[in-house]
């Protein structure tokens, strides 16, 4: 097949993305940090570092711990606040033509609604409700682990937001499908999953947890099978578009995630070892399509053929 016939574009919740590869909130800053490697407009979209209404300092170090095939982080939503983002970062992203996902978090439901109003007045393409950050005391995961709360919060945010709303789910729940259904009932336009799994490491010499906040969010290749399973379950439970995230390191992982039901995918932790990972994944998906005679990337989504049991 000629490469020119390849269609990598995806209509995600009403917005056309040039390809299905995004970078995950918290791992790619606001894009400029990776300027030596790629520009955010080469991606389907960029989900910028999670922001709050007011600036946040974040957690005491140590914030990072490596694990077998993964890592823990405990950043704690350090960010300059949504207004600083709009003033200092968004113009650059607009100029290069990047599709921006604004990842937002709040201490209260009111915060989420206020920030949604602020974001609605900008050129941002999507609002991603981070109701799953495991690294803060208020807000974050406290909202994302109860179905009734997810439904109510989503409904409230939708009422204050003119942008498509993506609800980012926490894997630290008993039933991921219940959470996805709650987001759907609340009127979400899309779902992203998974945020990090809650994890811990201890230094056996000092008996101290490696992370100063004791526990943190677990990500990287080790969580990929969990993320894949959850995306597959959610695909079979709701009809919303899905942004599949969790341990994707290469094009094969990305294709697997799409087969499980993701419309688009997010690359995060993999960038720390390989800053070019998102671009290599786009190329790898292209090669897979050429090799397998697939013209439209959307044909990969949900193409898994499960065993009948």
């Amino acid at each position: 097949m000629e490469q020119k016939n390849l269609d990598l574009s995806v209509n995600f919740a009403g917005v056309t993305l040039k390809n299905p590869v995004t970078t995950v909130s918290g791992t790619c800053g606001t894009g400029k940090e990776y300027a030596n490697f790629y520009s955010p407009e080469q991606l389907g979209a960029i989900s910028v570092k999670g922001m709050t209404l007011e600036p946040r300092d974040g957690n005491m170090p140590c914030r990072i711990a490596e694990t077998p095939a993964g890592m823990l982080n405990s950043i704690g939503l350090q960010n300059p606040g949504v207004h600083a983002f709009i003033k200092n970062e968004l113009p650059r992203l607009e100029k290069c033509g990047a599709v921006v996902i604004a990842n937002v978090a709040g201490n209260t439901e009111e915060d989420y609604c206020k920030i949604a109003e602020v974001i609605s007045e900008t050129s941002v393409a999507f609002l991603e409700m981070n109701i799953s950050c495991p690294n803060v005391n208020h807000g974050g995961a406290a909202f994302g682990t109860d179905a009734a709360t997810i439904e109510r919060l989503t409904k409230n945010v939708k009422a204050h937001c003119s942008k498509p709303v993506i609800v980012k789910l926490s894997p630290n729940v008993t039933s991921i499908t219940d959470m996805a259904k709650a987001a759907e009932s609340g009127g979400a336009d899309a779902i992203s999953l998974i945020n990090t799994l809650l994890g811990m490491r201890i230094d056996i010499k000092t008996k101290r947890p490696v992370l100063h906040r004791n526990v943190g969010g677990f990500s990287g290749p080790a969580v990929f099978p969990v993320a894949l399973r959850m995306v597959w379950q959610v695909r079979n439970a709701v009809s919303l578009p899905i942004l599949g995230i969790g341990g994707i390191s290469n094009a094969d992982d990305a294709i697997e995630m799409m087969m499980a039901g993701a419309d688009i995918i997010g690359v995060g932790t993999a960038m720390f070892a390989n800053p070019m990972a998102p671009i290599e994944i786009i190329d790898g998906i292209k090669q897979y399509m050429i090799k397998n005679g697939i013209e439209r990337v959307t044909d990969i989504t949900n193409s898994v053929i499960p065993w009948e049991n």
Partner: peptide, 26 residues
């Protein structure tokens, strides 16, 4: 500090400093 991205994106390797405005910041 323990470091992840190395390019300033992840905010993992911070240390606490005195900022120009007199406040503490990472």
């Amino acid at each position: 500090e323990h470091m992840a991205c190395g390019v300033g994106a992840c905010l993992g390797c911070v240390c606490q400093t005195m900022l120009a405005d007199g406040n503490h910041g990472y």
